[in-house]
């Protein structure tokens, strides 16, 4: 039983990074009804950019690296918007989708070329802290990752529901034409959505780097897959859904790894996805009555 709770707790804590990646996917989908498949790659790219600060100030504290990753993520988000959405006809859904696939591969390959594919050590906070309750343990760094992720999600929800930008974002996501008629600059809101999700992505990438202790371009594809699964299970366009689904997928896969082994783990996660697609295609938090 202890193994079960231990696996569940590790998985849920790590799942908070999946939730951050899922939010990025879902927010863009909610606002623009488009998938940005380069999101996880840009997030890892942001985390790599955060390491640049160590080139300038060797020995800079991890929090500075995380902050730079956060900013770089925002910048990358804006660049992704410009290259994959701004100049490409939005009316053609396949064009933007393929553009983001291209961007995913481009970012991945840029990272590979700059690092020769070598893993790079990533700074962490509280990585030497282990909370113990008898045999049960909780990693200090994962707890920190969880806390930062929750803080970011709280900040995002506050931004969406307490600010004019959030109001505009929700208006665009609900009815673009009506938002336009109300004088909202849809293009600007779209760009800001990419910057905000990019900022979140940067911090997600940094948190993943911190929790693994190493960063590698190997991370981009699995994170893209996990992000998409989380988005579908949570409900396309639902931020709370992405949060819950991220934690759920993290816990689910870790428990299954414990009992069924690593080779079957992803099989069950995919099965979970199919179950949702068949029985609850709208995900956990399907928007009521669909959208117009």
């Amino acid at each position: 039983m202890l193994d079960f709770f231990q696996s569940l707790s590790d998985g849920v804590l790590f799942g908070s990074t999946y939730a951050l990646i899922g939010i990025g996917f879902t927010l863009v989908f909610g606002v623009m009804h488009k998938l940005n498949l380069s999101y996880a790659a840009a997030s890892v790219g942001g985390a790599y950019c955060g390491l640049l600060v160590l080139q300038v100030f060797a020995g800079a504290p991890p929090v500075v690296v995380f902050f730079c990753a956060f900013l770089a993520g925002g910048l990358l988000g804006w660049l992704v918007y410009l290259t994959c959405f701004h100049f490409i006809p939005i009316s053609n859904p396949l064009a933007t989708l393929m553009a983001t696939v291209g961007m995913l591969l481009l970012i991945d390959e840029i990272i590979v070329h700059l690092t020769a594919g070598m893993p790079v050590g990533y700074p962490a906070m509280f990585d030497d802290v282990m909370l113990r309750m008898g045999e049960f343990t909780v990693r200090g760094d994962l707890l920190m990752v969880f806390a930062v992720s929750m803080l970011c999600m709280g900040g995002l929800l506050a931004l969406l529901y307490k600010t004019r930008l959030g109001l505009a974002t929700r208006a665009v996501s609900q009815q673009t034409v009506a938002a336009l008629l109300c004088g909202i600059r849809v293009g600007q809101v779209n760009a800001m959505t990419f910057v905000i999700t990019g900022l979140l992505g940067g911090i997600a990438g940094a948190m993943i780097g911190a929790s693994v202790g190493t960063l590698s371009p190997l991370l981009t594809t699995p994170l893209t897959t996990k992000g998409l699964i989380v988005t579908v299970i949570g409900g396309l366009g639902s931020v709370p859904g992405a949060i819950i689904a991220g934690l759920l997928v993290g816990g689910f896969e870790n428990v299954l790894q414990q009992y069924r082994g690593v080779t079957e783990r992803d099989l069950y996660v995919m099965l979970l996805l199919f179950v949702f697609l068949v029985f609850r295609p709208g995900g956990l938090f399907a928007p009521k009555g669909g959208r117009d």
């Binding site: 193994d3 231990q6 696996s7 590790d10 998985g11 790590f14 990693r139 993943i208 929790s211 693994v212 590698s216 190997l218 991370l219 594809t221 699995p222 870790n254 790894q257 414990q258 082994g261 690593v262 080779t263």
Partner: peptide
């Protein structure tokens, strides 16, 4: 213990 090339969480295996 087994893991995959791109895995990010090794807690179970190390336990």
């Amino acid at each position: 213990s087994k893991w995959l090339l791109a895995d990010t969480n090794f807690a179970t295996q190390v336990r």
